[in-house]
Amino acid sequence: MKKSIPAKSFPWLVVPPAAALIFLFGVPLLLVFAVSFATRGTYGGIEWTFTLANYISIADPLYLRIFWRSLWLAVLTTVICLLMGFPLAYVIARAPKRWQGILLFLVIIPFWTNFLVRTYAWMFILRSEGLLSTVLSALGLTREPLTLLFTDTAVLIGLVYGYLPFMVLPLYAALERLDPSLIEAAWDLYARPHQVFVRVVLPLSKPGVIAGCVLVFIPSLGAYVTPDLLGGARSMMIGNLIQHQYLVVRDWPFGSALSFVLMAGVLAALLYYLRAGGARSL
């Protein structure tokens, strides 16, 4: 362990964040947990009659399909972000020092604009008479207008776009610390470029890969704005289903049960992932 100031020496600094977490996160979570076992009232209220019906009705194939689509889209988003983010992070980490700052800045620039606005922009790009369709037909690559908007592909594009920076930043942090002489050493010891990558670069950047995947997978799985705007009613994800239950159907107990199954799912996936990927690096 590195030398650090013991946390004991200023216990009062822990009080505000702890209080915030307990009252603003812990208590509402318990409330949601309680509601998930209640019954929906006739006019959308909550009747405090204990039932497991909310959890049982999730097993409906209609809802399972939405869960499955969410999981699939989240995994696909994570994999695509990793495949696109790794070369980008590598190039930034190997660039001259003064360029690194500029390149990282460019990665972060989209955050300056509201996520909702940026997603609307994607609607304009992806719709049938939109930018992409116009450009492609002008180039003679397509004859008919694209039907991209309101499909799973559109949701995937939006998710990858939105979460790519969360993959690039931890990967950059890991790759920037990688000693370039290790790559040269592997090269000197007869490794071909792909072997250098698999045997040296990848294992040593594993903490960044794990962090990046977690940071992309979790928000993708619970995404709401992107599937709502780019997926429409046909490409619903869990986030939209939960919102729908709370605000449209006004079935709070069922919405709560969905939320808890999602949380449990994320937790289980995370534990499995960390156990499988992280244990060997420790």
């Binding site: 000693d179 002489s181 290790l182 050493a185």
Partner: peptide, 10 residues
């Protein structure tokens, strides 16, 4: 083969 200044052990 090269012996690196900082050894560059994996």
């Amino acid at each position: 083969n090269l012996v690196f200044q900082n050894y560059a052990l994996f």
